[in-house]
């Protein structure tokens, strides 16, 4: 009996401590988010006092909207490439910097540094590199005698998306690397010692010890980079603004354009809701699959 009241008291104390945070969170965050579900059912233009309720019409229109379908495809291409390449690069990088290289601390900082930059800074810097006339990349290609390889990088629909993928990977591989590095510290050295005794080579040790035991970090990294890429906006907005000719128009760019440029706030919000559902389902599936993998390994 006594214990129960004590527990009750703790609960009340906890609730008191939590209440302000919950209140602020729901007022400033949940409220607006929930209201955007409502706006997605209206034809609000974004600035007038009145709006009309249109039910699910925005969602129906979306299905017939070629721009929406194209944006969906662009978003998927962007996310898949970034998630795969970023993780494929971060793991070897983390292993290399986990070894006994002397300058590893300096190198870790260098590789992580881009992650703290604003995407705008990254975008503007890379625009100088990709400039078709005087940019670093084309100038370099010219100087090594490969002028036929010169491209209009960001201005060519064939290359623009891959230029953006390059920028994102450049910026965030270091971030993934740090998470893998942390995971590498937790792998017991006894395992490698045992493998050495068994005569396992480097590749075998990586495949049978390191890679499976990196599963927790991989779960987090894949989840973070998936959500991050599906939500990416700023970098694309400054470098190509969704162009050239819609080639890099992702869902986020389309939302921005519908809501703020075309004055279809209701429609833009509806795309946002769909995007939310997509991210939710995709990350949930990833989580379930990757978690199972962690347990089995």
């Amino acid at each position: 009996m006594k214990q129960l009241t004590f527990r009750h008291k703790t609960h009340i104390t906890l609730a008191c401590f939590l209440a302000p945070a919950v209140l602020i969170y729901s007022l400033l965050f949940l409220g607006p988010v929930l209201s955007s579900f409502y706006y997605s059912l209206t034809n609000w233009n974004g600035f007038t006092a009145t709006m009309g309720f249109v039910g699910l019409r925005n969602y129906r229109d979306m299905m017939d909207d070629a721009a929406f379908v194209a944006a969906l495809k662009n978003t998927a291409v962007f996310a898949v490439w970034v998630v795969i390449l970023q993780n494929a690069l971060a793991i070897p990088l983390a292993i290399a910097l986990d070894s006994g290289i002397r300058s590893k601390n300096v190198l870790r900082v260098i590789f992580f540094a881009p992650a703290v930059l604003s995407p705008l800074v990254v975008g503007y810097t890379w625009m100088y590199i990709f400039n078709p006339n005087s940019g670093l990349l084309n100038t370099f290609l010219r100087s090594i005698g490969l002028p036929s390889w010169e491209q209009v990088w960001l201005g060519d629909p064939k290359f623009a998306m891959f230029c953006i993928i390059t920028m994102v990977i450049w910026q965030f591989t270091g971030y993934s690397m740090v998470i893998y590095l942390a995971n590498l510290q937790t792998i017991p050295s006894e395992l490698y010692e045992a493998a050495n005794i068994d005569g396992a080579g480097r590749w075998n040790k990586f495949l049978r010890i390191t890679f499976p035991l990196l599963a927790p970090a991989m779960t987090i990294n894949i989840l973070l980079s998936t959500i991050g890429t599906l939500k990416a906006f700023d970098l694309i907005y400054v470098t190509t603004n969704g162009g050239p000719f819609h080639a890099t128009e992702t869902l986020t760019v389309l939302i921005f354009e519908s809501a703020f440029k075309d004055n279809n706030f209701g429609y833009g919000t509806a795309i946002g809701v769909v995007m939310f559902l997509i991210i939710f389902v995709v990350s949930l599936l990833q989580l379930l699959v990757l978690r199972r993998r962690e347990v089995s390994s």
């Binding site: 607006p32 919000t269 939310f276």
Partner: peptide
């Protein structure tokens, strides 16, 4: 995960 995803919604102006 839900909380991470929710931040993708257009929330700045709605409220």
């Amino acid at each position: 995960v839900l909380m991470l995803c929710v931040s993708s919604l257009l929330s700045a102006c709605g409220g």
